[in-house]
Amino acid sequence: MGSEVNTMTEYESTQTLDVKGENCPMPVVKTKQRVDELAADDVLEVLATDPGSVSDIAGWADSTPGVELAGQEESGDVYAHYVRKTE
């Protein structure tokens, strides 16, 4: 309970992208498209139901210049990913 409140404030997401119900490759592709519209240091919250998005978004953030994964959380069927734009 307490940790949930903490993690909400840790990322301070600027925008939220809802890709619930969408499957590979859309969560990664739409994340990339939305991140392109953000400014440096902005954090995008991505809400997905695709279990593959956990590995895919982490891998994408790891190999893509200009972004980093700030965190990932699972609550029920929803996976929340926090991606920070670094440049």
């Binding site: 490759p25 990664v28 592709v29 994340t31 990339k32 994408w60 190999s63 893509t64």
Partner: peptide
């Protein structure tokens, strides 16, 4: 199609 769009997302 999936590989192409995903690779584009990777830059």
């Amino acid at each position: 199609l999936i590989l192409a769009s995903t690779a584009a997302a990777f830059g």
